[in-house]
């Protein structure tokens, strides 16, 4: 079975995000870059499928030079090879451009099942997987928490409000991974060492024949407003007084009730 897992390199969830003064992006200094956690579920599921049914796992990643580290992480977990789409024209690429580049790279290799994270934790757009499936002309099942391989199809579970859908989808298809799908493994040290020698194909826009024009453009990054200091409700010091004062503030100042 030929399995593809798409990964994105994102800032660590705990990293301190500072917007550049000109609003053109975020300051990258001091940021620890990690694999998007939802993509990690995808990689893990890909590896489990391979371990059960045989086959090969290819990691596809669009990102600058530093993204190679994330590809190596996936290879250390046990993936077999990688494709690194690295071209400055893709800096700040929107979901459509990203999906187009991924699609171009994946078209060139055999693929029975493709995994993406259900969204990336940095821009939270949750579109790349969907567009990618569309561009490849294959069905997609999204936000999956359980996956079973059944010969020429997969059976997956997708939670929806108050219920779960059991969906069967023929291969080839694209699956986006949700938390709960699995517990991603910790890479073994021999795995980390071997990953250094696994093949990674680096491709640019020209090689893929993809333009970076895209459909959406980020105009400006603006940091969230600083949180205002809290207020201590004193009133006359009695519980009743405090409650009355709090109700008044909530209604008149915060306008929430």
């Amino acid at each position: 079975m030929n399995i593809v897992a798409c990964v994105k390199q994102v800032p660590d969830t705990e990293a301190q995000i500072r917007v550049k003064p000109d609003g053109s992006g975020i300051e990258e200094g001091g940021i620890k870059w990690v694999m998007n956690p939802y993509d990690e579920f995808g990689v893990e599921e890909a590896l489990r499928l391979k371990e059960k049914n045989g086959g090969e796992v290819t990691i596809v990643c669009l990102g600058p030079a530093r993204a190679m580290e994330t590809i190596r992480t996936a290879l250390a977990m046990g993936a077999d090879k990688g494709i690194h789409i690295n071209d400055p024209v893709f800096d700040g690429a929107d979901a459509f451009t990203t999906a187009s580049a991924l699609a171009a790279a994946i078209k060139g290799i055999p693929h029975d099942i493709i995994f993406c994270g259900q969204r990336a934790i940095d821009d939270d757009s949750a579109q790349v997987g969907a567009i990618l499936a569309d561009l490849l002309g294959i069905p997609q099942v999204t936000v999956v928490t359980k996956l079973e391989f059944a010969g020429s199809a997969v059976k997956v579970i997708r939670p929806i409000e108050g219920a779960q859908l059991l969906i069967e989808c023929p291969l080839p298809c694209l699956v986006t991974a949700q938390k709960g799908l699995n517990e991603p493994r910790y890479a073994s040290l021999p795995g980390i060492m071997k990953a250094k020698k696994k093949p990674v194909d680096v491709k640019n826009a020209a090689a893929l024949g993809v333009s970076a024009d895209g459909k959406a453009k980020v105009v400006r990054f603006v940091p969230p407003p600083a949180r205002a200091a809290g207020k201590i409700v004193c009133a006359d010091g009695t519980p009743e007084g405090k409650a009355a004062e709090l109700a008044k503030l909530l209604r008149e100042e915060a306008k929430v009730i």
């Binding site: 660590d12 705990e14 990293a15 301190q16 001091g30 620890k32 990690v34």
Partner: peptide
């Protein structure tokens, strides 16, 4: 690995 502390609190803190 990511924040150089066992709790994973942002290393900038």
């Amino acid at each position: 690995e990511n924040n150089s502390n066992p709790w994973g609190i942002g290393s900038h803190l």
